[in-house]
Simulated scan of single mutants.
Amino acid sequence: MSGVLTSHKQVDSLITSGGIMPDTWIRDQAIKNGMIEPFVECQKREGVISYGVSSYGYDARCADEFKIFTNVDSAVVDPKNFSSNSFVDRKTDVCIIPPNSFVLARTVEYFRIPRDVLVICLGKSTYARCGIIVNVTPLEPEWEGHVTLEFSNTTPLPAKIYANEGVCQFLFLKGAGDCEVSYKDRSGKYMGQSGVTLPRL
């Protein structure tokens, strides 16, 4: 689209028709509708990896609960039958990921996604530049819960994850209208999850 938006009406029209949502919308949804709890209204960055609302997203924090992958029993990783014995639980401010391994964690924040919104997640560049990859699947319309985070250490060295600091950015994509069937409508298996949640079938 060319030209400059000259009125609030044009801006409202863009938001109604879909697109990536700005800080003003994120703040409004978080405060009025509890979309993000607890919610940080501005970027916190002094002495920490930044978190809080940004121009077009929200940088979430990692809680201090971790499940560190270990394969002491030489088990096979099976998404349909995943054993909790493959993890060691730790509650700590700094988690060490073994070389070429991964850790499951969760966000500090609890999310409630509106019916006409899909949320995607990208890792923080601070971690990406250290060879630590953050993976999160999309947050679907009307899903709610703590987000389970997966950190992959792609390096041959141990790597640190800092609890209560920023680890990933969520981007809110507004659809052109409400979906016919939401995650809540179909009773999705990860609805309302609390804490670090393992794979379910």
Results as ranks from 00 to 15, higher is better:
Ile96Glu: 15
Ile96Cys: 07
Ile96Asp: 01
Ile97Phe: 05
Ile97Tyr: 01
Ile97Met: 07
Pro98Gln: 05
Pro99Ser: 08
Ser101Pro: 02
Leu104Lys: 00
Leu104Met: 08
Thr107Ala: 06
Glu109Gln: 12
Glu109Trp: 08
Phe111Ser: 03
Ile113Trp: 02
Pro114Asn: 04
Arg115Pro: 00
Arg115His: 07
Asp116Met: 04
Val117Arg: 00
Val117Thr: 14
Leu118Phe: 14
Ile120Thr: 15
Ile120Gly: 10
Leu122Asp: 13
Leu122Trp: 10
Leu122Arg: 14
Gly123Arg: 06
Gly123Val: 13
Lys124Cys: 11
Ala128Asp: 14
Ala128Phe: 13
Arg129Gln: 12
Arg129Asp: 08
Cys130Tyr: 06
Gly131Trp: 12
Ile132Tyr: 05
Ile133Met: 12
Val134Asn: 01
Val136Met: 07
Val136Phe: 04
Thr137Gln: 09
Pro141Glu: 03
Trp143Ile: 11
Glu144Gly: 00
Val147His: 05
Thr148Ser: 05
Thr148Ile: 11
Leu149Phe: 13
Phe151Leu: 10
Ser152Pro: 00
Thr154Arg: 01
Pro156Met: 08
Pro156Cys: 05
Leu157Asp: 14
Pro158Ser: 07
Pro158Glu: 12
Ala159Ile: 09
Lys160Ser: 13
Asn164His: 15
Glu165Lys: 02
Glu165Val: 08
Val167Phe: 14
Val167Asp: 00
Gln169Val: 15
Leu171Thr: 15
Phe172Asp: 07
Leu173Arg: 02
Lys174Arg: 15
Lys174Glu: 04
Asp178Val: 02
Asp178Phe: 12
Cys179Trp: 10
Cys179Val: 15
Glu180Leu: 13
Val181Ala: 00
Tyr183Ile: 03
Asp185Ala: 12
Asp185Arg: 01
Ser187Ala: 13
Lys189Glu: 13
Tyr190Cys: 06
Tyr190His: 13
Met191Gly: 08
Gln193Tyr: 05
Gln193His: 06
Gln193Trp: 04
Ser194His: 11
Ser194Gly: 03
Gly195Pro: 09
